[in-house]
Nucleic acid binder design. Structure first.
Length: 583
RNA sequence: GCGCCUGUAGCUCAGCUGGAUAGAGCAUCUGCCUUCUAAGCAGAGGGUCACAAGUUCGAAUCUUGUCAGGCGUGCCA
């Protein structure tokens, strides 16, 4: 990675300066040296501010330190370098360095930006919606966020296993069974609308969207209807629906983990075992007929109930059993939770730690909830109001690409107001098109270069501007050739040169961007990066005409265009957004 | 009351984990299509980084306090 390389060059130079006795009392070079991107272009391509940070340890002023570092630096990759202000070291990268970047893009191609496997396994759990209804906006945010984090981590070298935890036990399933039961009776005209228990059931209308006679008559005996059978039927129905909806927006799981099948089967069940163990280890006590976890002794603000007086387990107890199971399958767990669940974190972490697990190895990524607005006015989403926006609605309105981009572009920690009216308008002003357009433009240039030319006056076909064989040779050589920028540098004017350098430097950043985004579980950074890369490409495009008579010039520009196209494609793929060749 | 999150341009958001003159997009205004896609480019206006102290060479970023908004604080999930 570019910044790693620069960082290590500076580390070497600091070590050398220390050895030469030029850095006062400093004993060793710092672990990591930050490589910054200056805001001001006059400050070069990269800046190092380490000199100011070493003043105390070295006992020298920062400009002296900067000078000592520069004097001992391997300057091979820097065409210009100066010490500014209090001791910033400003770097201008040489064409050799830019060419190295381009070499890498061609050598690694689809893997450019990816790290080698680091052998670490992460179990990522997300969405985990109850199988009692359709998936709406909020699930959409979580689903897209989770799948993008999964891709990011994979690209960053982790072995990621994605899991959907199906909350298919307990009260909400009983409620589902009853709702389904009555909805069928209604469909069969055995009760009328007023008999349906709207108070305690899921709304009839939302059930009727899924409970169709043609289907349930195959699965259930309508004349001898059983609530449990209805619960099973409805559960599977919603599960299959959710699976399909998610798959449609490229959200897929390695495993759908059923709570009822895995945690509540057998005797004792896995949840029983947790309760027994906690009682045996004195982590829990009985009071008023309930079983309490001593959460207050383990970092929570008060004790929490594991088993209710009616003998049923709480969500916490089942979740502990589930997390114990996950820990047996992976070293590191990431859960994606809505921010409204943040209050549960101390409880579950405290209990897992007390049970002998490393609670540090459970990471919870919170996302703030999505609220709905119409024409700028916030509205409450509710099933009864009939204004629930489902993922399916969104796909129909804005399409998959825009939906995914929308959901991922904002930091998870920020509240998101989704304006449906606005989203509907997102046809031409949609930011995702700006990025995709850059990709299509790049493809279009290549098409024009290799396609047969039509002479408008003569109406005849002429030879392509460039033979495919020569084009292929250019690209193959792009993996190792140097000099293709160096040779044209003197032919470029300021605008041409600047936009070309800026584009290549942005391409060079990609691996660092991935690493940073993965570390922060922050796919929005990739969305921002894509936007920036597209901007750099559009600028390059308007300042540098690619298809020109000068072949050296054309070759250098073609190589940059294809390199850009590859990086755009890689980054879009990371977010599961399509990279169209034509628009 | 307590805990977590948020507060940056008219609006939606970035700000590289403490760096130099705080940036994009949308919206408003001005230019650029007989040359590779104008879904684009070039430019203008728009700011007390909620407020106040503190930490240091240096703060939108870290600490503390205040204000405003969201969420949580169940023998619900």
């Amino acid at each position: 990675m570019l910044n790693d390389l620069i960082s290590s060059l500076f580390k070497q130079s600091i070590d050398a300066a220390i050895a030469a006795g030029k850095l006062g009392n400093l004993k060793s070079a710092p672990e990591s040296i930050a490589v910054e991107l200056p805001k001001n272009p006059d400050h070069g391509d990269r800046a190092i501010s380490i000199a100011m940070k070493l003043t105390k340890d070295a006992g020298l002023n920062s400009r002296q330190i900067a000078q000592a570092i520069v004097d001992n630096l391997d300057r091979r990759y820097f065409s210009h370098l100066d010490i500014a202000g209090p001791g910033f070291i400003n770097l201008t990268l040489s064409y050799e360095m830019l060419e190295k970047t381009i070499n890498n893009v061609f050598a690694e191609d689809e893997r450019y930006g990816s790290s080698k496997s680091n052998g670490k396994k992460i179990l990522l759990e997300y969405v985990s919606a109850n199988p009692t209804g359709d998936l709406h906006l909020g699930h959409g945010r979580q689903a897209v966020l989770g799948s993008a984090i999964a891709s990011l981590l994979k690209v960053a070298g982790y072995d990621v296993f994605c899991e959907f935890y199906i909350n298919d036990a307990g009260a909400q399933i009983e409620k589902l069974g009853k709702s389904c039961y009555q909805a069928i009776l209604f469909q069969e005209s055995k009760i009328d609308r007023n008999d349906y228990d709207e108070e305690n059931n899921y709304p009839l209308d939302s059930m009727l969207e899924f409970i169709h006679p043609a289907q349930y008559r195959h699965a259930l005996d309508v004349n001898n209807l059983d609530i449990n059978a209805c619960a099973d039927y409805a559960k599977k129905l919603f599960q299959e629906h959710q699976k399909k909806v998610l798959k449609d927006i490229f959200v897929e799981f390695d495993q759908w983990y059923s709570e009822s099948e895995n945690l509540h089967q057998g005797s004792p069940t896995k949840v029983d075992l947790i309760a027994q163990e906690m009682l045996a280890k004195d982590l829990a006590y009985e009071l008023d007929g309930a079983l309490w976890f001593r959460a207050k002794d383990h970092g929570d603000e008060r004790d929490r109930v594991l088993r209710k007086a009616d003998g049923k387990y709480t969500y916490l107890a089942a979740d502990l059993a589930y997390h114990r199971d996950k820990f047996s399958r992976a070293d590191y767990l990431i859960n994606i939770w809505g921010a409204d669940h943040h209050g549960q974190i101390p409880g579950i972490k405290g209990a897992l730690q007390a049970l002998g697990h490393n609670s540090e190895a459970l990471e919870i990524v919170l996302y703030q909830l999505v609220s709905l607005a119409k024409n700028g006015v916030e509205v409450k989403m509710s099933k009864r109001e009939g204004n629930v926006v489902t993922i399916t609605d969104l796909v129909d309105e804005v399409g998959i690409d825009a939906l995914r981009y929308f959901m991922v572009e904002v930091q998870a920690n920020n509240r998101m107001v989704f304006d449906l009216e606005l989203a509907k308008k997102q046809d031409k002003d949609n930011p995702v098109y700006y990025i995709q357009y850059a990709h299509a433009r790049a493809c279009s240039i290549v098409r024009n270069l290799l396609g047969e030319q039509i002479d408008i006056n003569q109406g005849t076909l002429e030879k392509p501007i460039l033979q495919k064989s020569e084009f292929d040779e250019w690209l193959n050589n792009a993996q190792h050739t140097t000099g293709f920028f160096e040779n044209i540098a003197h032919k470029l004017n300021t605008l041409e040169s600047k936009s070309l350098r800026d584009l290549v430097l942005t391409i060079a950043n990609y691996p660092d961007e991935i690493e940073n985004a993965a570390l922060n579980r922050a796919p929005y950074k990739i969305a921002n990066y894509l936007n920036h890369l597209a901007t750099m490409f559009h600028q390059f495009y308007s300042h540098n005409r690619v298809i020109v008579d000068d072949k050296d010039l054309m070759r250098a520009r073609v190589i940059i265009v294809v390199a850009t196209q590859k990086v755009l494609r890689n980054a879009l793929k990371l977010l599961s957004i399509s990279a169209p060749e034509k628009m």
